[in-house]
């Protein structure tokens, strides 16, 4: 830490500084950072330790790793359909988050930029509809999808596409508000002048608005991705075939019956599940970090 702090490329006062002053200006920040890292990591450390614990049981796991064995990982792939779960989740979360931010950005654009009868009622309805607990609707979902499964097996029970359609039903409710708030902060002059220049509403949307709202697209995309990876209640009733399950459903099953014995495999699965999310995050973070409020503050 010290070495990093003592080799600044450009400081206003390159003269010698006392440790106290260094601490007052930079050091405490590292202290906060390190504390935060500790807080963030210790439960994860426990998971890592369990994942590499050759005994693979809950009771034999300590906070610090006691062994290094890939047995849990190989068991995971050999004894369960983990590969399928992983791909299902990835596909589902990828497609669903992409489609859902697309649908909701369309709606958010209309709600933010256009004035039409029923606009405010529509907005309020969107907010309210998602307050109704969706798990209660499971009976109705069975009703719909039993018919759909008979007619179109390709989008029925036990298919990622059926679940995808279902998640799309929630797309508007979840993200439209968030995006509309962001669209609202973009100055109207931008699209008005584009319109003056002869751009159609489609061009205004794709060419001007979407690039400007990239940060919020990244945020909602990340939210939607993580949301679908974690969704359990609906997926649990929807996917019963072992190879059609998602990570949340499959891995819950690992510990539902034998919590103690499968714990190592469960921990290994947890670590693997985190990988795509971390990658998506790395991909999107520059959009988020580079100016979430471009509109709000500069406008």
């Amino acid at each position: 830490m010290t070495t990093i702090a003592e080799t600044p490329t450009s400081t206003r006062r390159p003269a010698r500084r006392s440790r106290g002053r260094w601490f007052a200006q930079v050091g405490w920040r590292h202290l906060v950072g390190v504390l935060a890292v500790v807080f963030s990591l210790f439960p994860i450390l426990f998971v890592i330790s369990a994942a590499f614990n050759p005994l693979g049981t809950l009771s034999s796991t300590e906070l610090l790793p006691t062994g290094a064995s890939l047995e849990n990982f190989t068991n995971l792939f050999d004894n369960t359909a983990f590969g399928h779960w992983f791909l299902n989740s990835l596909l589902l979360a990828g497609v669903a988050s992409f489609a859902s931010i697309f649908l909701s950005s369309l709606a958010a654009y209309a709600f933010s930029r256009m004035r039409f009868a029923g606009r405010r009622v529509g907005l309020l309805a969107l907010l309210l509809i998602q307050m109704f607990p969706q798990f209660l609707a499971i009976v109705a979902i069975f009703l719909i999808f039993t018919t759909l499964t008979d007619l179109y097996p390709a989008i029925g029970f036990n298919t990622p596409w059926g679940l995808f359609l279902l998640y799309m039903g929630g797309a508007l409710g979840a993200n439209t508000w968030l995006m509309k708030g962001f669209f609202d902060t973009l100055p109207k002059e931008l699209d008005e002048s584009a319109t003056m220049d002869g751009a159609s509403h489609v061009q205004v949307f794709f060419r001007i608005m979407l690039p400007l709202v990239a940060p919020i697209l990244a945020v909602t995309g990340l939210l939607a991705f993580i949301g679908s990876i974690n969704e359990f209640i609906i997926a649990n009733v929807f996917l019963t075939e072992p190879e059609s399950k998602t990570l949340a459903v499959g891995m819950y099953g690992l510990v539902a019956g034998e919590r103690n014995n499968n714990f190592g495999m469960f921990a290994a699965g947890t670590l693997l599940t985190a990988i795509p999310t971390v990658l998506v995050f790395q991909l999107l973070q520059r959009y988020i970090v580079s100016g979430l409020t471009s509109g709000a503050v500069k406008g």
Binding site: V37, I44, I226, T270, A274, T277
Partner: peptide, 16 residues
């Protein structure tokens, strides 16, 4: 820091 701090969010919440 950012990479490490984000990890709790990336871990599947049902498992954690």
């Amino acid at each position: 820091y950012r990479m490490v701090l984000i990890l709790p969010y990336a871990m599947p919440s049902f498992a954690m």
